[in-house]
Write a protein that binds this DNA or RNA. Structure first.
Lengths: 336, 336
DNA sequence: GTGAAAGCGCTAACAA
DNA sequence: TTGTTAGCGCTTTCAC
């Protein structure tokens, strides 16, 4: 480490100012200077110091991202999409996991801020407890919430149109002949959980289906299995189960099959997200896909807008989902 | 943004030096000064500028990590483990994906270096093409390879003891009564692929099993399915299939079952890694677990050692795997 | 078109 | 113990 622009300037026989100009190419220099500087830089193996540049420019070219957990394939997919998007404009991603803990989340927010990230993309882990730290951060740097959000509002948000997603799922099973249907989701500690449940209720009402008491636990495979067992032990099965995410759906199907129930013949199951192993499980899972790339693109675009200093209203962008019909939901033929 | 240590000093009525000392607590100041400074800082909402500190200290408290793809659950698990580990010493992770492309990888390496990361953890995507960039980076900053590595050697490495892993898998199916066995892995473009194949060959030889021609493709579910179909269409099935990772195993099992073959009754299948859905697939997958947390810890520890300036020999740390017997490999009872 | 110099925010010498 | 100051590496006025 350690060849600076001074070394390059000296080797090229010019001032540091000229070296800087030549290297950046943003100001005119004579061809001769340009040539000498670029050769000197190459020979010395000069590599600009981004830290010094950041201090000088008051911008780091870095975006911070905080997700509840990197283990969850949904967030992983999001991270990947955001990273790709940032690459296109030469920026880097500072990634943190809050490990589903608002305290850790607040701490990570602090360090990201102290590292002077140019913007923040966050999926807050708790709809209430995350609010103070998120709002305070939003006051200091462009911030957009992605997927999950805090109740308080006050910052931009990009996510799924959960109402539309649940409507698609419910209408799909209704069209397949379902009359009774239950929702297996997560306890209402985050916005996704709440939105999906209320979207489900809205949709079943509109479709005239009988909605049983929802099963609320975690967004995990384990909870899916438990929910399946609950269903098995509790009277007649519903015609269909709509799940809060794919993991729950896969666990639930497994429990059902272990209980001797055939999917979709006896119970239809629909997941949500379409990440990870949804397409590969057995049978392949019907689910509602989140347009992850679009969401990432929107989030980055929003960050940009604020950065350009435009004063603008707070934006909430809900992106339309796409139903992916695979094999866990069979369209029953007429009269069957 | 924008309250600096100067503002704090002025508000507290002391010099910036005293403010700095009081804030860091690393040098003696009178109780009075300490008190006034910390109150001023709190009132102004002072937040130290990590960029300036980094420039001054010539250290950023940041570790760069490059993995081939964030979509792969194995790398995700690794990233998570490393992130957790770094947290413990107050450092942050700058995460990049090379997208399995040596060119992108080299570029990411450059920008990480220019951001002056204190160390680099990388899983090079290509055993040969990744070498120049990795070696050049290793010359500028502490670097450890994790999991995959480049052929050239010359840097520290932490990974799985692949020979031991394959030995465990092979001995397990041999003990279960297998006589003929085939390996379904990835083409030999990275070190993991090579090591696992050679480990397999060694182990089958030692165990006196008949090893059929290996099936080499990608580390993906799709390739697993294709390999399964290949097996189905090609004469008598082997007694067991050892797979290069869990994704391949899950795909292969699916293809086999679609072909009417029962697992493990007709063919035993063993995966490798034990991340993602291995435990949750149907039937649950017997696999060889990578001790991811330990590997992450070792990698971070190695970085530390170099940082402390100890001159030391290049280290290669192979960590022992752990066989996880689930249901895709049945121990056949004696005389069956 | 080029060079000298200021300054981004911070900490550690060095003096007092 | 405290204050003054230099300097980390860079870019950009401001003169020439």
């Amino acid at each position: 480490m350690g060849v600076t622009i001074h070394d390059v300037a000296k080797a090229a026989g010019v001032s540091v100012a000229s070296a800087s100009r030549a290297l950046s190419g943003r100001r005119k220099v004579t061809a001769d200077v340009a040539e000498r500087v670029s050769r000197a830089a190459a020979e010395l193996g000069y590599q600009p110091n981004a830290v010094a540049k950041a201090l000088r420019d008051q911008t780091t070219g870095t975006i911070g991202m905080i997700v509840p957990g990197i283990g969850n394939p949904f967030f992983t997919t999001m991270v990947e999409a955001v990273e790709r998007r940032l690459q296109e404009t030469g920026r880097d991603l500072l990634l943190c996991s809050s490990q589903y803990d608002p305290l850790i989340e607040a701490r990570r927010l602090e360090t990201l801020l102290s590292r002077r990230v140019d913007g923040l993309i966050i999926s807050p882990c708790d709809i209430e407890a995350s609010a103070p730290a998120v709002l305070s951060a939003a006051g200091r740097v462009p911030l957009v919430q992605l997927d999950r959000y805090i109740e308080a509002g006050g910052t931009d948000w990009v996510g799924l149109d959960d109402n539309a997603a649940l409507a698609q799922a419910v209408e799909h099973v209704a069209a397949g002949g379902a009359r009774t249907v239950v929702f297996a989701g997560s306890r209402l500690v985050n916005s996704s959980a709440r939105l999906r449940l209320s979207g489900f209720q809205l949709a079943t009402e509109r479709a005239g289906l009988e909605a049983r008491t929802p099963l609320l636990g975690e967004f995990t495979h384990e909870w899916g299995m438990q929910a399946g067992r609950l269903l098995l032990g509790d009277g007649p099965l519903p015609d269909a189960v709509i799940c809060g995410n794919d993991e729950i759906a896969i666990g639930l199907i497994r429990a059902l099959r272990l209980g001797g129930i055939r999917v979709p013949h006896e119970v239809m199951v629909v997941g949500m997200d379409d990440v990870g192993h949804a397409a590969m499980c057995d049978p392949p899972l019907t689910t509602v896909a989140q347009p992850v790339d679009e969401m990432a693109a929107e989030a980055v675009r929003l960050l940009e807008q604020v950065r350009l200093g435009r004063t603008r209203a707070i934006q909430r962008i809900a992106i339309a989902p796409r139903l992916v019909v695979r094999e866990t939901s069979r369209q029953r033929t007429e009269g069957e």
